[in-house]
Write a protein that binds this DNA or RNA. Structure first.
Lengths: 244, 244
DNA sequence: GTATCAGAGTTGTCTAGTCCATTTGCATCG
DNA sequence: CGATGCAAATGGACTAGACAACTCTGATAC
């Protein structure tokens, strides 16, 4: 019962022909190699610069090419695999053999939006801490992470977080709380100018957004976090087994 | 130790101002509402149609808007949550309360590429079955799934798959094999014209690509699958616990 | 030798416009 | 009343070009 869906040729946009041409080219080159300039491709492929740039933009978004303004366009390095585990960022990086660090970008006390309040099981407009951090591996920025926690449940959290880089360590040592279960969501989005700046990429480039809603042993919500990763640099990896 | 990264205003592209304007507008409207046409926005925001379209394209890619040629641009429905489990597509859909179906697009015997051979632990250029299927929930296409299995280990597989829609059922009943462990990868990509056509979306729109490398109880690789989901329509959901 | 500067070449952003494909609604015809 | 056909409006694809921002290199000055 094989469907004969579109046995006819697809209507293929011109920019996609350019993209396929470039994909073949990329396969023959090593990472770091220079590919022809936009204007050369415009002439070679008899098209406009806009069309060439659309093909290049998709390849950049897929992590196949890297563009450097003023310099040229290069074949990209392979993506980095990032495992999804119920451990802290710090432990996880060490396990994977990376030297990880964290920069605190912002830590403020604010009123919860309806969405945040519902997730943390607190009253709407109750006080929450919003902690924004930049995760780095081997010195290069990896993700922008924004955590929300109840200010009533964790009084003085910001002061502790400023001194200790690991949030999970603070939760364990100071508040005797450990997240043991979590529901994670994974979706795509486009980078805002702020995230693009922090992660050293372009506004609008595709991102992987990891949401984590974690709970303690009593089933109480502990934190709500979203982390923005560069979609052109990272692949998430999860291990599953049917034995549960 | 709060970093004062870019306390200065970001250089915000003009198209991003348009995008923010539209985001505010979307928040005030219900799903299905019509937003102003591209040409009206061009005048209202004193910009070019190219710039308006770039903002619209990102919002479409993020699942916030839907464009219908000849008709207009509309506020999109919320994304659909899709759980990641070690169960078959058929079971999984039933558990989530959806009526699922599958269309066999193509099923061929071919020689394994080096990559496929390595994943299936067979010799390079050995025979493999390549099975391409379209997954549908409630009648609308959800994902394009391509599976690779060793032709030597599962002789006659294609014939069985043509008769029975569930691959896992065939593996269990005919070959007495069950995948019990899997390593899943999740990354972003842009839709090719073929996938776009099958999933009723646009070439180049952002996709979530789920790779599954599954193993039987003896640790032997059973299949290598990649599934392409529309990034503007789906969110993957995974439950994690530290008790392992 | 070293530092500085100018210019050429690159990508980044944006504009204004053309032509095409599709949808929609209205007028017309039977 | 229904069906048909046409025209307007919409988004889709592409072109040609301007100017800005940035990088690199080579010539020049010290």
């Amino acid at each position: 019962m094989v469907l004969d869906l579109n046995h006819q040729a697809f209507r293929e946009p011109k920019y996609y022909q350019v993209k396929r041409h470039l994909l073949h080219l990329i396969d023959t080159l090593a990472p770091g190699s220079l590919v022809p300039t936009e204007r050369i491709l415009t002439v070679e492929l008899a098209t406009s610069r806009t069309t060439v740039r659309q093909a290049l933009s998709e390849l950049v978004g897929e992590g196949r090419l890297v563009r450097r303004q003023g310099s040229g366009t290069y074949v990209a390095e392979p993506k980095i695999a990032w495992p999804l585990h119920m451990t802290s960022f710090t432990e996880q990086s060490a396990a994977a053999g990376y030297s990880a660090s964290t920069q605190l970008l912002d830590a403020v006390r604010e009123r919860a939006s309806d969405d945040i309040a519902a997730r943390l099981a607190i009253k709407p407009a109750a006080a929450v801490y919003c902690i924004e951090r930049l995760r780095l591996v081997d010195g290069t920025p990896m993700a922008v992470e924004t955590s929300y926690l109840s200010a009533v449940r964790f009084p003085g959290l910001i002061g502790h977080v400023r001194k200790t880089s690991s949030l999970y360590r603070v939760l364990a040592d100071v508040y005797d709380t450990a997240p043991v279960n979590a529901e994670e969501t994974i979706e795509t989005a486009a980078a805002s100018p702020r995230e693009a700046e922090l992660l050293n990429t372009d506004t609008g480039s595709p991102m992987l957004v990891l949401g984590r809603h974690s709970f303690d042993a009593g089933g109480e919500p502990v934190e709500w976090v979203h982390s923005w990763y560069r979609g052109d640099r990272y692949v998430f990896v999860a291990k599953l087994s049917s034995g549960r």
